[in-house]
Amino acid sequence: MDHHKEHIMSSEASTQNHQHYLDPSTLEALGSMQIRARALADGIIAGLHRSPHKGGSVEFAEYKEYSPGQDIRHIDWKVFAKSDRLVVKQFEDETNLRIYLLMDGSGSMDYISEDAPITKLRYSAFLASTLAYLFLRQGDAVGALSFDEDVKQYLPASTRSSHLEDLFFMFDQLQSSKKTNMNSALRTIAERAKPRSLLILFSDMLDANDEILNFISVLRSRKFEVALFHIMDQAELDLPFEGLTQFEGLEGEDGLLVDPDDLRVQYQELMQQHIRTISAACERGDVEYVRCTTNEPIEETALKFLRGRI
């Protein structure tokens, strides 16, 4: 199955759906991660209802009409979302999907620009929480791993509903530090996760080098399914700063005193080239690639990913 899909929502479509979604800047005010995730999930589900993407199949044999009293964990919510019919999946093989959410905690993920609602790290956290909520609700096992220059925390995949609390707690407490070592995190998860697991990486990929990109491709060859949420701040794309500026790194790099106007064009070219490199690597490695910015609604970002899987 070709899972590489590049999801870059057009601004027009984004605008059309924004009115239904939560403003990311308001998520912090909602209280616990559980509430936030649920709210986001509602929006996603509603979005899925409106999605033109129908059909598709997962690993099941047939559908059966739901009867009251049956375990609702088997309800195929996607079908419900599409058709308003409550059906229960009958699996050929009763193996659940294992999903691991990999959270990049490098210093650069803690960046928020003037016009952005939240940091990339918080955006990742909200997004991961929401997906975890949705996956667990449909009976998939969800695990998580956070890393910076080391693996900070690891939660194995589980389908227990109480596991969701652990995940929310982990995501809520995510902190960034200066350096990152994505290579080490990926190796760790490759060792711990079972084959045919879905590895979803949340990162700004600023430290991604050829080695990392190759390894992501290698994961695919090890029967892992890989998806990448490439999370960026709009300012990283535009370099909107004016006047003589002393730029300072978030991971201990040397600063730079420069007039952004002098090198904006060159920077933007390099950034686009960087994005293309990542995208091309994902395409080669059959990695699902979703790029987004922190001022896009989280629901939209999630829908980009989920629609492709329906």
Partner: peptide, 10 residues
């Protein structure tokens, strides 16, 4: 000069 933290310094 204004000091600005920026992630993509590389």
């Amino acid at each position: 000069a204004v000091k600005v933290p920026f992630p993509a310094l590389r």
